[in-house]
């Protein structure tokens, strides 16, 4: 195991985040505050509680998911795409380092950043609503699994992208709609039956539902199913990355 290599890649990526502190951490805080003002106060005051939970509190897990899904993908994809773009990647490819070590370095750093963002948002939200977490361990498990799997997903996009447009298009056209339609701001039970069925094909629904369950013990789908979908997604991403490295896809061809 090339520990030194993992350490320098991880440090390099983390440093990038802390050098652009505003962009990395202040913007998620600001957008959370804005969401609270708009959805929590302005609109939320006219919406009934969802089940036992007030609307302001209800959207907290969704907001966290919204942020970490988009941030994980953005961070991880940029982290590997930029060295490919500048040509610096030659160094990593010619180093005595396995693909697993490369992933631990890059994806580990992206996932860490997302985790930090999640914590910051949770703290920010605690200024607006009183937060109670029913199952902290499960909450952390869902959070970690989501950060890791979506960072992996971003890593795949960063390997696949040929240019900056490619890099933007998946987050913009796929991730954002899936997250918004995945029940960040509502319970899918609020939808007409047809759209409820459609929603079940959206993997993000399972993530948000499971994560929300860890807070309020109330979920749109069963927790076991949520966990299963997250692990499935993680496995799929791992398999794709493994294949990419094995064949040298877009890296060594």
């Amino acid at each position: 195991m090339n520990i030194y290599a993992i350490r320098v890649i991880y440090k390099y990526e983390m440093k990038r985040a802390f050098e652009t502190l505003g962009q990395s951490f202040a913007s998620p805080v600001l957008s959370t505050v804005l969401y609270f003002v708009v959805f929590g106060s302005a609109i939320g005051s006219r919406i009934d509680a969802v089940g036992e939970v007030s609307y302001g509190l209800f959207i907290v897990p969704g907001l966290i998911m919204l942020a970490i899904l988009t941030q994980s993908v953005a961070n991880a994809s940029f982290g590997i795409f930029f060295p490919r773009f500048t040509g610096q990647i030659y160094e990593v490819l010619s180093a005595p380092i396995s693909f697993i070590e490369i992933i631990i370095g890059y994806v580990g750093a992206a996932a860490t950043k997302s985790l930090l963002i999640a914590i910051i948002i949770l703290l920010t939200a605690s200024f607006f609503v009183e937060i109670h977490i029913a199952h902290p361990v499960w909450m952390l498990a869902f959070l970690l699994l989501t950060c890791i799997s979506f960072s992996l997903f971003g890593f795949i996009i960063g390997l696949w992208a040929k240019d900056f447009e490619n890099l933007q298009i998946i987050p913009l056209l796929v991730i954002t709609p899936l997250v918004f339609l995945g029940g960040s701001f509502y319970s899918i039970n609020m939808l007409p039956p047809f759209w409820q069925t459609v929603s079940l094909f959206n993997p993000v629904v399972y993530l948000i539902s499971g994560f929300r369950w860890s807070f309020f013990e109330a979920a749109d789908v069963s927790v076991g199913l949520s966990l299963f979908v997250v692990v499935l997604f993680l496995t799929a991403c791992l398999l794709i990355v493994w294949w990419m490295f094995k064949t040298g896809y877009r890296l060594k061809q």
Binding site: Y4, V8, I9, Y12, E91, V92, A95, I97
Partner: peptide, 11 residues
């Protein structure tokens, strides 16, 4: 340079 050295498994 520190990055490069680390990549190549050197302390």
């Amino acid at each position: 340079l520190c990055f490069s050295r680390g990549l190549f498994a050197k302390k």
